[in-house]
Design a protein around this nucleic acid. Structure first.
Lengths: 339, 339
DNA sequence: CTGAAAGCGCTTACAG
DNA sequence: CTGAAAGCGCTTACAG
């Protein structure tokens, strides 16, 4: 093989020489800091002819900017890429970052070593800001990063209330209420298949469910809720528990679409028809919801837009624009066949 | 809000001062270019106490390295993140890149403007190498990038034979043969639901199918193949065409698992049972294959490992190690319930 | 092994 | 608006 060598890129020096001006002048004109000088045209032409692009390392050394931001996930590597929620968030994030001409880097932190490397990476000046997309438990990483003095936005409400930590989330409480309300208007005994108790979206959806029941005078309903992982299997097993506990149930609010599919499996296995005997409402409105049999009535959260907002919030901070620190996007009930 | 300011990072200068040596010496010791000097310990301690990390922009300016590589997809943005194939490739790529301490950047090129920006980005020195993950049609982008003098690896066989362009692929020809052979051993009339004619994996799988038929003395079998998109719908529609054309068919080699699911839908709709009346073999072995009803007999390609190999091949080029330029990973038949 | 010095390519006060 | 000059933080021949 021939071996490779980077083609030497043209420098500001060479552009200046070709245009017959100083390096400083060429630099100012190309960065738009010199309005309408005599030399403007000559410099632009020289740059175009040479295919000049500023060397980013040199620029970064002066400006202390990298023009790169990272999306960090601290889930175990396995799940991230195949999770349709993250996949869609990422789409929005990419869109928002690209629209403002920054570079998106992708980082997975799954070990102590990874955490350490990320810190090194930041101290080294690689990143202007970070977005975090983890939901499990309380994570100290966002705070640790903020202590380094760089902007951070969290995707999803953080565990501890912290007015300084910017975040974007869907209105999970409202969504939980809407789902519960829809079923309570139509069914006699409604239960909740909740997500993991240590994840804020699960907590908020459950809070919405509880709120709606309480609003209708239903109290002491804790035994109507069972927590489980956000998966088909989790939904199936939680529903089995609830069926044993409340054989009369005829409405299920599931905390995710996958869980709703599991709930339908469990119900069907016990001879209950959906939606004839039991109404089931999902949450998220991922592709699975439409593909399910029957198609899922579900609470839609605008996942892609959440990604965009995360990117925008971060970039606003980096650029020193003031704006909201917390964004809560509305959720909406989509009625299909399952309830 | 308080506004933010980057915490000034410690410099080599400050480490040197604290250790009582020159900047040059400190730099050499920290980069391992000075073996066992008197000062070694003092410098390491000073660096640890200060939390020193080399400023990457300054380093990059000298070394002409960015220590970052990019995975580039030129599909329209929509499909990439949700495609389980790319999701899994990306997992492997991330793993391989992280293992060698580089940074992975993710780039989507969906317009002329995006292409231009990518070129700028490269000329600006942001990237040490690129991986391409597009399959549709002949794409000039990898060549354009290589012309800039930086290493490139393609994920999947490129359209034009080009010994200089490194690539990683699964043995699609072998997989196509295996699928056809398996069915031909058991069935009387086997057809092929092929992928898009302009995509190399589809071409190679079909070539394997044709080869196997020819090897058994079956000629003039072009009318046993119909091309369609790599989707459930594509598989369904192609199968309908084949059923009209060859009502006697009793074996289907599908070019993807999604297509196999579509084939099963079409067959079932026409009253054929799978696998009793017709055997169906998929390709890829994505999660869908196991979840399908019946579970798919399919040709497995080691997708994640492909990602790893792509990363390794690229990093080997960047590091100047010589090695294979083309890697073909074996495919294996997984027998489940559909054939 | 060590230090003084040059230089990577850019941006930015400082004078004019 | 323009130019000469300093400086960002590092690496790396060059002498010793």
């Amino acid at each position: 093989m021939a071996g490779f060598r980077k083609v030497p890129a043209p420098t500001l020096e060479s552009v200046a020489a070709r245009a017959g001006v100083s390096r400083a002048t060429a630099g100012r004109i190309l960065s738009g800091k010199a309005g309408r000088g005599e030399n403007s045209k000559a410099v632009h032409e020289a740059a175009a002819e040479l295919g000049y692009v500023a060397n980013y390392a040199a620029r970064s050394l002066m400006t202390r900017r990298s023009d790169a931001v990272a999306f960090v996930v601290s889930e175990p590597e396995e799940s991230v890429f195949l999770d349709p929620f993250f996949a869609t968030v990422l789409r929005g994030v990419h869109e928002g970052v690209a629209a403002r001409e920054r570079q998106l880097t992708f980082i997975i932190v799954s070990s102590e070593h990874d955490r350490h490397r990320l810190q090194q990476f930041i101290v080294g000046g690689h990143l202007d800001g970070l977005m975090f997309g983890a939901f499990h438990g309380a994570d100290s990483l966002p705070d640790a990063v903020r202590a380094l003095g760089i902007p951070v936005v969290q995707c999803g409400r953080p565990h501890e209330a912290d007015d300084d930590l910017a975040f974007v989330d869907a209105d999970n409480v409202g969504g939980g209420r809407a789902a519960a309300g829809y079923l309570l208007d139509r069914r006699a005994f409604v239960v909740h298949v909740a997500g993991p108790a240590d994840m804020t979206p699960a907590q908020d959806r459950r809070a919405g469910f509880d709120l709606e029941l309480a609003g209708r005078g239903l109290t002491a309903t804790q035994d109507r809720t069972v927590h489980a992982p956000f998966t088909v299997q989790g939904g199936r097993e939680a529903t089995e528990v609830l069926l044993d506990r409340h054989p009369q149930l005829d409405g299920v609010v599931a905390a995710s679409d996958a869980m709703a599919v599991g709930a339908i499996q469990a119900l069907t296995a016990r001879g209950r028809r959906v939606p004839e005997d039991v109404g089931v409402v999902g949450f998220d409105d991922v592709p699975l919801a439409e593909a399910a049999q029957p198609p899922l009535t579900t609470v839609r959260q605008p996942i892609r837009q959440m990604g965009r907002e995360v990117a925008d919030l971060l970039l606003d901070q980096i650029d020193g624009r003031s704006g909201p620190r917390h964004v809560l996007l509305p959720t909406t009930l989509r009625v299909r066949g399952s309830a």
